[in-house]
């Protein structure tokens, strides 16, 4: 009963979920990794943003990274839509789509920096 024939096309929703899972995993890992590092005491905290708790850093990331995140999500939607028709596995589609979107956003960022 469990032996369901594999669908030929990836499911769009499931692929999107896999890609979002990748972003969540990487962000959570970076957050957990940084939170576990003991910081130097007696730091000079006079300058703005010089001594932030991980929570404050996350808040700043959400504000400043908002446009990047929005671009990443938009790019993920497009790439997933393109790949889902061709790749038979949702997991592979989502993973490739997350990778591809990061590349697209990185290239777009580099071009934008170059044009400025």
């Amino acid at each position: 009963m469990d032996d369901v024939a594999a669908p030929r096309r990836a499911s769009f929703g499931l692929s999107l979920l896999v890609a979002l899972g990748w972003y969540t995993t990487v962000l959570a890992a970076v957050f957990v990794g940084h939170a576990g590092i003991p910081a130097t005491p007696n730091r000079d905290c006079a300058a703005v943003f010089s001594c932030m708790t991980p929570q404050e850093e996350l808040g700043l990331l959400v504000i400043l990274g908002g446009p990047i995140l929005a671009g990443l999500l938009f790019s993920t939607l497009v790439v997933t839509g393109l790949l889902a028709r061709r790749v038979p596995s949702s997991i592979l589609t989502g993973t490739l789509s997350a990778l591809g979107s990061v590349v697209v956003v990185a290239v777009a960022g580099a071009v934008w920096q170059g044009l400025r």
Binding site: G21, A28, V32, G33, H34, A39, P41, I91
Partner: peptide
């Protein structure tokens, strides 16, 4: 499968961030 797909990269990223960091540790045992 999900444990492998997300769990392994998660542990690797956390481990590599710690490995490449320069933490402040007061004592040798720490």
């Amino acid at each position: 499968f999900v444990a492998w797909l997300y769990g392994v990269p998660f542990l690797l990223i956390v481990g590599l961030i710690r490995r490449t960091s320069s933490p402040y540790l007061a004592t040798r045992s720490a």
